Amino acid sequence: MLLEEFEPVKAVIEPGMARKEEKADICSTLILTFSGQVVEQVRQMDGVHEGGALKNLNGRHPWYIYEKDGCKVAVGLALVGAPMAVGQLEEYKALGFENFIIFGTCGVLDKNIAADKLILPSAALRDEGTSYHYAPPSDEISYEPALLSTMEKILDKYQIQHIRTKTWTTDAFYRETAAKVKRRKASGAEVVEMEAASIMAWSRFREAKVYQFFYTADYVDHHQEEWDPRREERKLNPMTFFEIAFTIAKELQVS
């Protein structure tokens, strides 16, 4: 099968070949969020300036430099979907960023998990394609234990409640059938999203320091075969989770 052709060798096109902007402002930590609202709010803050941008056929994707309490980070928008998210990470790492803090929403497969809960993905079911080009074939992949432990210790230090669980990474969010949801739950997954398995595989392959978390949003109910957006239950401003990401960045700076 094509997805069994993992080859840990140099590729014809390497990320370092991407065009680089002159005078780009690079710092050690990059916070990537899938929330355009968060990026826009950060962009409008006093003292924030554009640090540079990635470019592709979809357009120009800038990052912004945010500094507070002596901690300087870059903040950018992560593109939805495993191929684009990992493609961005490849280019950001080639530019010189070292720590990657990534966050966004996830759906839940277990109704007992309320909205706006912070999730640490300990492993991911690989129901996508990108991860198979960065890691040998398997049904799931685990988060790098040392990185997961670092992030969990930071959350515990600041008494930030979180749930550590397995996630289901899928390319096809319009094909989350009731039977698939039931099988993924049986395999231990409690949440679903579109990038984590690929990001975990990329992190291991490139030996990159990635700190990823989710916050819960909609509910995929396989019992009733219904989708519940749970919009009324989602009370927290996404900036709450940006502040958590920034707290992680500050701790990484002093560690």
Rank of each mutant, 00 (worst) to 15 (best):
M17H: 11
P137S: 13
K209T: 11
V220T: 09
V191R: 01
M194C: 13
P229I: 09
Y92C: 04
M194T: 12
I65M: 10
N112D: 15
W63E: 05
V192N: 03
K68G: 12
T169D: 09
G104C: 01
K182A: 15
R164C: 09
K55L: 15
E21Y: 07
R231H: 13
R234S: 13
S142D: 12
R204Y: 07
F246A: 00
P238A: 04
K117M: 13
A217Q: 02
G76R: 03
F103K: 02
Y132L: 09
V181K: 11
E7V: 10
A124C: 12
I163C: 01
Y92D: 04
G16D: 10
A11F: 09
A78W: 00
E225N: 15
F241L: 02
Y64T: 01
E4R: 14
E128H: 10
H133G: 03
E50A: 10
E91A: 08
V192D: 03
G87C: 09
H223Q: 15
L30K: 03
S255H: 09
E40G: 12
T216I: 07
E67Q: 15
K209F: 11
E128N: 05
A249H: 00
K20S: 13
Y66A: 02
I101R: 03
A124G: 07
P238N: 11
Q161I: 11
A178H: 08
L252E: 01
F242S: 00
T105C: 10
P136Q: 13
V42G: 00
V108H: 05
P15N: 12
A115I: 05
N56P: 00
D116L: 06
F246K: 02
E21W: 07
P145Q: 04
L120M: 13
I244L: 01
A18V: 06
I31A: 05
F241T: 02
K20D: 06
E232W: 07
K72P: 04
A135D: 11
V42T: 08
E22H: 12
V210C: 14
K182V: 10
E98Y: 13
M1R: 15
D116T: 08
L120G: 03
V73A: 03
S187D: 15
M45H: 11
G70D: 05
V48E: 06
K235G: 09
V42S: 04
G104P: 04
L155K: 00
E195M: 10
F213A: 02
V210D: 02
Y92M: 11
E243P: 02
N99S: 10
A189V: 05
V181E: 06
A124W: 03
Q37L: 14
T150F: 08
